[in-house]
Design a protein around this nucleic acid. Structure first.
Length: 114
DNA sequence: AACATGACAAGTT
DNA sequence: AAACTTGCCATGT
């Protein structure tokens, strides 16, 4: 993918990818949290769009990113739709496509990193 | 080249 | 409280 930079420096993709890679195993975060960490609610949508690209990169645990209510909205974009299995393998319980005790597993980059 | 859409979220009505 | 509107930027058509 061509790395496009905006005038402020790097593209969202690079930033988003960087943050997602930092998500600890067994933890999850939301699009909004990432968007907020990158600045503000710039665009939670774009974060999801960036994940679409991230899903192709095996180095990026895109399965650890869900929407704000812990719903696995993006599982359709996963190869084999194995998002839930990966989460469960990390100790995250998933019930009806939503993460159980999401708030306890929640990892906020703005808080955990700084 | 222009228009529409998308793994969302927060504020407003 | 529920539904509607706005923000944001890259991609696809």
């Amino acid at each position: 993918m061509s790395k496009k930079r905006d005038k402020t420096g790097y593209s969202f993709f690079e930033d988003v990818h960087a943050v997602v890679r930092l998500i600890p195993r067994g933890r999850v975060t939301s699009y909004g949290a990432i968007a907020h960490y990158l600045g503000t609610k710039m665009s939670a949508r774009m974060v999801g769009w960036a994940m679409n690209a991230a899903a192709k990169e095996k180095d990026i645990p895109a399965h650890r990113v869900v929407n704000r209510i812990g719903l696995l909205t993006g599982k359709h974009h996963f190869k084999g739709h194995s998002m839930q299995k990966r989460l469960e393998a990390e100790g995250i319980q998933v019930k009806k496509d939503s993460i159980v005790r999401f708030q306890e597993h929640f990892w906020d980059p703005a808080r955990e990193l700084s």
